[in-house]
Amino acid sequence: MDSFAAGGIAGVSEILVMYPLDVVKTRNQLFVGKSMGTIVSLRNIVKQEGVSRLYRGIILPICMEAPKRATKFAANDTWGQFYRKLFGVEKMTQSLSILTGATAGATESFVVVPFELVKIRLQDKNNTHLYLGTMDCLKKIIKQEGILALYNGLEATMMRHITWNSGYFGVIFLVKSRLKTKHELLNNFIAGTSGGCVGTMLNTPFDVVKSRIQNSPRTILPQKYNWSIPSLFIVAREEGFWALYKGFVPKVLRLGPGGGILLIVYTTLMEFFAKYK
């Protein structure tokens, strides 16, 4: 329960600081053609649509971040205990950290898919006139596409979270085992930031196709983007390999330091809960 609460608070802390970069990331991923830079995109959104547009759809991520991050860390702890017992290992190793992170990512996916889908629809500039807000978007998706449409992109979301979590927790284990500094907060920030950067490098292609799959209404047939692997080939063939890394800069700027913030808040709260008990 402690890891669930600490993960939830850590997730909300990160999203409040980093959300505008997520908006820019999604816009770049949905855009077919040459994307603008992060600073230019931020400036254009503010100039053309107002500052508030940088926070459009933030209600869903805030609602999502608590269960999402809570599930991430709680599942990582739980699966870690399971795998140590299964393989008869007393302490975590890097390979177990990668396996545990991947399994935790798959678990986390089932929680976040509906939130992610509504967030993607709200962040797309082309959908501005379609949805009045979060609840209006949710109601229209269910009414027009059916309630199962909320799980559109589940497979791609699982691929995104499996790759990110395995990279994130695997690198955290490696970096923390190598760091010699006695400053725990600095250790956690360096390890979390490094893990966030590596996780982002691994999962950005899956994030690109996930965004496109979830932004495709089920009422439009045939669907161009359905499953992650075929969609990867479609994007690479039509737009070039590097199109699979659209939105990488704002994403890594968010999830690099964001990964450090997550780990610092999580570990600090876990230490506080332990001391309080």
Rank of each mutant, 00 (worst) to 15 (best):
Y83L: 14
K125M: 15
L117Q: 10
V209R: 05
W227C: 14
M270R: 00
D22P: 06
N44T: 03
T78G: 12
A5G: 10
I142Q: 00
L262Y: 02
M64R: 01
D124W: 09
P230G: 02
V46T: 01
I45D: 08
G260Y: 06
K139A: 11
I264M: 04
W79Q: 00
L132R: 13
N28F: 09
V46H: 01
A75D: 04
I234R: 14
G196H: 08
K210D: 05
K251Q: 05
V171T: 09
A75W: 03
W164R: 13
F206T: 04
G153R: 06
R160E: 15
I213T: 08
F173S: 02
I261G: 04
M159N: 05
S3A: 15
Y168E: 08
M201Y: 07
R27P: 11
P257H: 01
T38C: 03
K85C: 15
K125D: 12
A274L: 11
G192P: 08
N165L: 10
G80R: 09
F206H: 02
E108K: 02
I261M: 04
F273W: 14
S41K: 00
R84F: 07
G50T: 02
E184H: 04
Y83Q: 13
G57V: 03
L30Q: 00
S211F: 07
Y245T: 02
C197K: 06
L122F: 10
M92G: 08
V198P: 02
E145P: 09
L42G: 02
G247R: 00
G7I: 05
L99R: 11
V24L: 13
V249Q: 03
M201T: 07
V12S: 01
Y151G: 00
P250I: 02
V23M: 06
V252A: 02
N44F: 04
V112C: 10
S35A: 15
L54E: 05
Q48H: 07
G167Y: 06
I59P: 11
I98F: 00
E116P: 07
G153E: 13
L30F: 03
K139P: 11
A66P: 10
A191M: 10
V51L: 13
K139C: 11
S109E: 13
P222L: 09
I39Q: 06
I147T: 12
L96P: 12
T26C: 11
V208Y: 00
L16H: 05
V23A: 07
E145T: 12
F248T: 01
E238F: 06
C63L: 14
E116Q: 15
V46M: 04
G256N: 01
L253N: 02
R121N: 06
K119I: 10
K275G: 12
L99T: 12
T38M: 03
L130D: 13
K180C: 01
M92I: 12
E65P: 08
V17Q: 00
C137R: 10
V118A: 06
G80D: 09
H161V: 08
M159Y: 08
K182S: 11
I142C: 03
